[in-house]
Design a protein around this nucleic acid. Sequence first.
DNA 1: AACGCTATTGCAAACCACTTGCATCTGTCA
DNA 2: TGACAGATGCAAGTGGTTTGCAATAGCGTT
Lengths: 152, 152
Amino acid sequence: MKGIDQRVEAFEGQLRKAGLRMTQQRRLILRVLAEADDHPDAKGIFTRAFAHDPTLSLSTVYRTMKVLETQGAIERHAFEDGVSRYEHADQAHHDHLIDIESGTVVEFSSPEIEALQAKIAAELGYEIVRHRLELYGRKIKAPRRKAGKKDA
Amino acid sequence: MKGIDQRVEAFEGQLRKAGLRMTQQRRLILRVLAEADDHPDAKGIFTRAFAHDPTLSLSTVYRTMKVLETQGAIERHAFEDGVSRYEHADQAHHDHLIDIESGTVVEFSSPEIEALQAKIAAELGYEIVRHRLELYGRKIKAPRRKAGKKDA
DNA sequence: AACGCTATTGCAAACCACTTGCATCTGTCA
DNA sequence: TGACAGATGCAAGTGGTTTGCAATAGCGTT
């Protein structure tokens, strides 16, 4: 991990500026998010945080996620399973490829696609405000390997 | 309209093959869908159909949509507003651009983007099963005058 | 045309993810 | 330290969608 504390700290300042408070709960949730390398949903975040503070409530998680989202600290995604999933927003823009068998989410980005999107929108008389691009696929079974390398 | 009855008829055969029945309700809902040129949600479909048959229930609409989807007769989309919206599936594949101000849905398709998606997925070791691409944007106000007063 | 089997329907209750009202608690800042 | 507005926990509420159940109605058969 790289600088979870700094992240939390930075966010605290951001909150202050908005007249909001840095509470224990928010600190905890922030930490959980910073440590997550997947895309957990509210319940998942709650579970992880609850382990550190059994007084935490699920509504606080939801409320916190809303605050974090409004502050631009996290991004919310709703994949096909319907629930909202979150990830911290301090990374470059990217889209997602979801493994329909394992649920694993892989991130990718494609400037070419983005450019095409903008072009298409423009042709239709629109300017893109945001977009949603999700690929649902399955792993391609490695086509017979010749020199026996163990696979990942 | 172009061949709503044929569509309904064709679907009836399809149902039969699956051991399912063509009921009045399904006929009605099918008709409503065929006549729709937008992307109505369950409630919308229900409202339109209810006007023709006040005994119809919302649960039947939901159940029917599920049947239709499984049979491949319609496609279900969940845009950002969260509710499921439907459209009949007898048209070419396309994606959607949603006007964030009016909610209007514009359809478009881009073989180039699809190609890029496949390429990206392949590079990640995946084959795409399906995808979701939605552009959210706002209409560009016609840039009539160039030098000077910005209206609004 | 009536029969019987079972898919389908309507209704109400259940679900689920998420939100909210309210009384209490707790950051923050003077 | 005190006061006040923001934040929390709990429970109840929402809104979209699903489901259990008894009644109904397609559809192949007689």
